[in-house]
Design a protein around this nucleic acid. Structure first.
Lengths: 209, 209
DNA sequence: AGAAAAGTGATACTAAGTATCATCTTCGTC
DNA sequence: GACGAAGATGATACTTAGTATCACTTTTCT
């Protein structure tokens, strides 16, 4: 009894929040799996909802569109993985170098996940709507990256544009590299391509000029 | 007779191409107007098609979604305006400086178009779908900017990532500035905000490092 | 001039996305 | 521990976006 009270008290997020997170993740996972298996066009919201064991209305409470659910399922966790890595790379590195280092870190086991990357890229291009919603998701990534990298700006001030810009540039590099990689048939070295785009990236203080 | 032959021969693009362009523009214009007047949700494709005097099927031949048509109507020409200005600013300016100069140029008659900018920004945020498709359009802008600015890279080589990155960074700056401006109620100085974001932007050669 | 190619519109259909409401679950308070 | 409030769910019904097909018209090319 007392134990359960303590447990409840200790629980960071209540039952409700935890359930919501689980449901959201379940829907996204199912959406991504079905889309990879049968293609986005052949996957209906009804199927996703049924497979995820939620009502159709609930599906749309969690995601604004079928495409967004798929995008989340494919790579929704990616932003947090990257943000996590970003926080852990050598603290002496500046913001832009930290991003490059984080991507280098992620690129290490690229070979193992090559097929997955290819599938995701193909899917994100499979329709204009899917592409649009993928871009929508990228904006979330941008903010996650910005938050993760902000502490590395030594002289950060209020409303500083640099973290957000660095996030945007990072995602642009990832997106462009991914596109070029796909155009080449997905046979090339995606991490190297990403570094190529990232290498063009630099930031300077507004008043350094 | 002979005159008409000469005329036909001189025509750069055939009747078909010209008609297509006009139809596309008409649809986009109507879509934007109706969306501004009644909101995107209250505007149906049927209304747009009817007003633009095309069949419903034709509408979807020109645009992949209602939202994309609206986005095009709102600012579809913007990319070409910017690209045009970009080509005309002082040829001695480097790529990044040219972008800043072009935006400064565009900012000069901002005051006159403030209300329009505000409407467009509000509309692009009015629904997640609209936002997603706006981002989709921005990718077109990116390539237009990249093409316009590419000649300014003195040592451009094949597959150089810098023009595309500069295009992406420019659009990111515009998008972020626009968002911040809107969050502040659209009362601030949008051109100045844009310059703030653009100021963080720099490019260096991959092998300068 | 006439055949080929491309664009258009009508029709019909599928499924995405919205709105409403009764029911059930979780939360805070007594 | 019970209870009322707040929030989440699912069923239902509905509107409209987006797709597919086909007969018809316009443009292009030879």
């Amino acid at each position: 009894m007392i134990l359960s009270i303590i447990f409840v008290t200790m629980t960071v997020q209540g039952v409700r929040e935890r359930k919501k997170g689980a449901t959201r993740a379940r829907i996204a996972d199912v959406a991504a799996r079905l889309a990879v298996e049968h293609g986005i066009a052949a996957t209906t919201v009804d199927e996703i909802a049924a497979e995820a064991e939620v009502g159709r209305a609930t599906f749309f409470r969690y995601f604004d569109s079928k495409e967004l659910a798929v995008a989340h399922g494919l790579s929704g966790a990616g932003a947090y993985v990257l943000a996590g890595v970003l926080r852990e790379v050598d603290p002496r590195l500046g913001p832009a170098d930290a991003v490059r280092a984080a991507y280098a870190e992620l690129g290490r086991d690229f070979a193992r996940h090559r097929a997955m990357f290819y599938e995701q890229a193909m899917l994100s291009r499979s329709s204009p709507a899917m592409f649009a919603w993928t871009l929508h998701l990228y904006v979330d990534w941008e903010t996650a990256i910005a938050d993760a990298v902000a502490p590395r700006f030594a002289d950060l001030r209020d409303g500083d544009p640099r973290p957000r810009m660095l996030g945007a540039m990072t995602m642009a590099a990832a997106r462009l590299a991914w596109g070029e990689w796909l155009d080449d048939g997905g046979t090339g070295d995606l991490p190297a391509l990403t570094q190529k785009y990232l290498a063009t990236l630099d930031l300077r203080l507004p008043d350094d000029r």
